[in-house]
């Protein structure tokens, strides 16, 4: 029994640590290098965007570029699109997934397969097809800014679907539903008071992902001639690179913030295709 109480010798720890250091130096170096390279464009766009040669820190490039434009409108457009696409996705997918998990789990393989199709089709191909199809099928449809919403929903579908599906799988919906019903709850009560609160994490995760993607989407909006924030950025960038750099910096930061919130809420890992390019 006496052996348990033996005090550890502090000096021994040092050796143990240096032993494994060989491989770890290489790993730390790789990660450090990656960090520097990742950050360089970010730092550069801040430095480039918020300075003027010989003047130091300055908001002038950005102010000049924004003066006389209706950036507010474009920002609002993007914000509206982000909110509407997110709501649209949730309204479409949450009931669908809940229904399928409860009543027809054998169909989930099929819908999962469906949800991956947008993965395969590049945004630019989707725009081309949409342009062709809706110009003939419903000529007025593409005029409205809001016509972008369904396409954004399509583009974000793989990520949003996965996030929600993983969330539902993690709560064992059937048991939860049965337990709630056995206590006398009506279906809508179960939905509002039991299921949705338990899905909060994955709902939030799906929303953040969706917003982050809409924030950066360019191809669809530009080619369907709608004016969103990324489209505005490209216009600015044509002749005011400093202002564009400043806007890029802000965009990247906001994206980071959204995704950082996402990982904080420990939503399921996203293995995704890249964002809209």
């Amino acid at each position: 029994m006496a052996a348990i109480e033996k005090l550890p010798l502090v000096s021994d720890g040092v050796k143990a640590r240096t032993q494994v250091a060989g491989g770890d130096v290489v790993r730390t170096a790789i990660i450090g290098l990656a960090l520097v390279l990742f950050f360089l464009p970010l730092v550069a766009s801040a430095a480039f965007g918020f300075t003027l040669p010989g003047q130091g820190i300055s908001f002038e490039p950005l102010r000049d570029a924004l003066a006389g434009t209706d950036i507010a409108t474009q920002l609002m457009n993007t914000a509206k699109l982000a909110v509407l696409s997110t709501i649209g996705s949730l309204v479409l997918l949450v009931p669908t997934l809940l229904f399928l998990h409860l009543k027809a789990p054998n169909l989930l393989r099929f819908t999962e397969w469906l949800s991956v199709i947008p993965y395969v089709v590049p945004a630019i191909a989707l725009v081309a097809g949409a342009n062709l199809f809706f110009r003939q099928a419903a000529p007025g449809f593409m005029v409205s800014l809001y016509s972008l919403v369904p396409f954004y929903m399509v583009l974000t579908l793989p990520l949003v679907y996965r996030s929600l599906d993983a969330g539902i799988r993690s709560i064992d919906l059937r048991t939860l539903w049965a337990a709630s019903e056995s206590l006398g709850a009506k279906p809508w009560q179960t939905l509002w008071q039991v299921v949705l609160p338990n899905l909060r994490g994955s709902l939030l995760g799906a929303s953040l992902l969706s917003c982050a993607m809409v924030l950066g989407e360019y191809a669809v909006a530009a080619l369907l001639l709608h004016s969103t924030f990324p489209v505005f950025m490209v216009q600015v960038g044509m002749n005011q690179p400093r202002a564009a750099a400043a806007l890029s910096f802000i965009t990247i930061l906001v994206t980071w913030l959204l995704l950082a919130l996402l990982s904080r809420d420990s939503a399921p890992k996203t293995t995704s295709k890249g964002g809209p390019r």
Partner: peptide
């Protein structure tokens, strides 16, 4: 890997 391409280009 998720960021929009426009911001990346200007950066």
């Amino acid at each position: 890997s998720q960021m929009g391409g426009v911001a990346l280009a200007f950066a």
